[in-house]
Every structure is written in C-alpha cells, then in structure tokens.
C-alpha cells in the first residue's frame, strides 16, 4: 500500500538534495583535479556534461594524462560503466508493471549509481514511481555535478593545496555516499548478496584490476541473490 508520498518533479528535486550536496564537493574535486592535470576549464566541464559518471571521469583524467590511445581509453571507461545496464531494469522491476517509460530517454540519462540507489530506496519506502519524479531527481543531481565541476575547474588545480582537511573530507565523500545509500536499501535477505558482492570485488580488484573487481562484484552479488532465492 502506498503511503501517498508525492511523485512530482519537485519531490524528485527535494529527494535529490542529499545527492546534490554530496555531488557538489566531489565534482568540485574533479574540476580541481582536471585543471591540475592540465585540462582547461572547458574540457573539465565537457567531461562532466557528456560523460556524467564520477568514477570513470577521474579514471579518464589518469588515462588522458598517461597518453593512453583513444580506443584503449574509451574501451576502459565504457567497460567501467557497463554496470549501468542493470539499473533501469532493476528499478523498473521494483517500480512494478504500471511504471511508465515513455520519457525514459530523458530521465534515464540521470541514472547514476547514487540516483539509482536513491530511487530504489524511495520506491522501497512506498513512493510511487513516476517519470516526473525521476526527472526531478536526475536533474537535481546533474545540475549539482555540473556546477561543482565548473566551480572546481575555475578555482584551479592548486585550490585545495592549502586545505588538506577539506581535501581529506572530499576524498571520503563518495565512499560515505555509497555506504549511506547501501544502508538505505538494506534488508535482511540482501545480506548474502552484499557479502558476496563485497568479497568478489576485493578478489577481482586484487587479482586483476579495479574495473574487473567492480564488474565481478556486481555480477557475483546479483547471481548469488538469484541462486539463493531460487533454492528457497
């Protein structure tokens, strides 16, 4: 039974506030890192505008500055974002059969890790899925990401050199956000899924690479959930 939480663009924007507050400093750090790596402010902003995937943007900086060939860099970054393939169907599964996808071409662009986690958490708490809500949620997060990047890029590469405490706090913002999102959707039946995903991530990262660890964790965790419930 729904508890009548609104599902408008405005409620989406309000729900995006925690993400926006988390995104801004991270994007700021990205803008600072990008200009510090030799990119112009316009190039840093373009990466956020066009790619809009935090972790892979930081990886893009490393690939660009290391002189990686275009196709190698593109393939690496695309592989890193493959996990996003799972988000739309998982969210729509939670939303139910009545969920509309007519304008998904617009709101699905905003399905980042955090937006996906927040949307899933809202649906789990009884908010009815709607496209306007998803649009507001995605827009709030996207706007914050772009604004943070722009401010960071304009501040310049050395902006945080004299602020080590701020720099340290910013470096933990993304892990803290992921952990908070995990807690917001946590239920007892998902504990084995989370444990398997975590172990597979560690194993994949140590054995191959960080990207391999991410893919291994997601696939192993989801597979564990499938098998466990299948036997029940």
């Amino acid at each position: 039974m729904s508890n009548a939480l609104p599902s408008t663009v405005r409620s989406g924007l309000v729900t995006a506030l925690p993400i926006a507050m988390g995104y801004f400093p991270i994007a700021f750090a990205f803008g600072v890192a990008a200009t510090g790596a030799g990119l112009s402010a316009a190039e840093a902003f373009a990466l956020s505008l066009i790619i809009y995937a935090g972790a892979s943007q930081f990886l893009a900086l490393a690939l660009i500055t290391s002189g990686a060939p275009l196709l190698v860099a593109a393939f690496t970054l695309i592989a890193m974002n493959l996990r996003h393939v799972l988000y739309g169907p998982a969210l729509l599964k939670a939303a139910g059969e009545a969920a509309s996808t007519r304008h998904a071409w617009a709101w699905a662009w905003g399905l980042t890790d955090e937006v996906f986690g927040a949307a899933l958490g809202e649906v789990a708490r009884g908010r009815q899925f709607s496209e306007p809500f998803m649009f507001g949620l995605g827009l709030g997060a996207y706007a914050s990401w772009l604004a943070g990047t722009l401010v960071g890029a304009l501040a310049g590469g050395g902006a945080l050199a004299d602020w080590p405490v701020v720099q340290a706090g910013l470096s933990f913002m993304l892990p803290a956000l992921f952990l908070s999102l995990l807690l917001s959707i946590l239920t007892r039946p998902q504990v084995p899924v989370i444990a398997v995903a975590g172990l597979a991530t560690v194993a994949g990262t140590l054995a191959v690479s960080g990207t391999a660890g991410i893919l291994a964790g997601m696939i192993a965790g989801a597979a564990a959930g499938t098998l466990r419930r299948g036997r029940a």
Binding site: K93, Q190, G213, R229
Partner: peptide, 22 residues
C-alpha cells in the same frame, strides 16, 4: 530475481571499490 539483487549488489560493490584504496 537477478534484477532484484542487482541494486544491493551494485551499491555494495561500489562501497568496497571506493574504500579499498583507503
């Protein structure tokens, strides 16, 4: 069932992946 487990698996993975370097 796979899709239902995807969300927790994805976010748990990102928690570990982002904290592991620390």
């Amino acid at each position: 069932r796979f899709l239902s487990a995807t969300g927790p698996a994805a976010i748990a993975t990102l928690v570990v992946a982002s904290t592991l370097p620390m």
